[in-house]
Amino acid sequence: MSSQSVVDRVHVDNLDSEGLARIGLDILAASVGTCFVFVGSEREVYAARSEAIASGAISEEVVVAPIDGEAGSDDAVAWSDGAEPRNLFCAHCHQTFTAVAGVGDAVTCPSCGLSLSVHYNFSRRRAAYLAKYVSKDSLVNRGSRP
């Protein structure tokens, strides 16, 4: 008995609400055992992964391959370079927003106006890094990007 693999490639030009809806429809139409691989920027692949899971895929069926530049850390964990936009989740007003910021950078939440520090904590469900309040006094040695 031979098994035959079928590979369907779907290209989504813009990962806006329409692009995410298209991913959701593809997940709903897929048969059991289908594997989904998302390739793109960190922000895009995790947003696509989040949509796939919300549409019924299970974690084992979803693979993400971010192609952003990565910087290694002392603990052998690789994080995307701060030069790319990423989604941040404000721990205070619970809004998700996009900013060009690396882990440890300071940003201002556009919703509540608080100064936030970007943490290593990443939520795959929200496809966003945690950003928590940091006092302006402790920002002396921190980088900040608009």
Rank of each mutant, 00 (worst) to 15 (best):
L20R: 03
L20I: 11
L20E: 05
A21K: 05
A21E: 07
R22I: 08
R22G: 09
R22A: 15
I23N: 08
I23Q: 04
I23C: 09
G24S: 15
G24Q: 12
G24D: 08
L25C: 12
L25N: 12
D26C: 14
D26E: 15
D26N: 09
I27Q: 10
I27C: 11
L28H: 07
L28K: 14
A29L: 12
A29Q: 04
A29F: 03
A30T: 13
A30M: 11
A30V: 14
A30Y: 12
S31N: 12
S31C: 08
V32W: 03
V32G: 14
V32T: 09
G33S: 07
G33E: 10
G33L: 08
G33A: 13
T34C: 11
T34A: 06
T34P: 03
T34K: 00
C35I: 15
C35Q: 08
F36I: 02
V37F: 10
V37W: 02
F38W: 04
F38E: 05
V39P: 00
V39D: 01
V39F: 01
G40P: 10
G40F: 14
G40A: 10
S41M: 11
S41F: 15
S41P: 06
E42F: 13
E42M: 00
E42Q: 01
R43Q: 13
R43W: 10
E44C: 12
E44L: 11
V45H: 02
Y46R: 00
A47C: 15
A47E: 13
A47T: 15
R49N: 00
R49M: 15
E51A: 14
E51Y: 06
E51C: 13
A52L: 06
A52H: 09
A52F: 11
I53T: 05
I53C: 03
I53N: 03
A54P: 08
S55L: 11
S55R: 01
S55M: 08
G56C: 15
G56M: 08
G56E: 12
A57R: 09
A57D: 14
I58R: 03
I58P: 00
S59Q: 07
S59N: 08
E60K: 05
E60A: 10
E60I: 12
E61R: 09
E61L: 02
E61P: 00
V62M: 00
V63M: 03
V63N: 00
V63G: 00
V63F: 02
A65D: 01
A65L: 08
A65R: 01
P66V: 13
P66S: 08
I67Y: 09
I67N: 04
I67P: 02
I67Q: 04
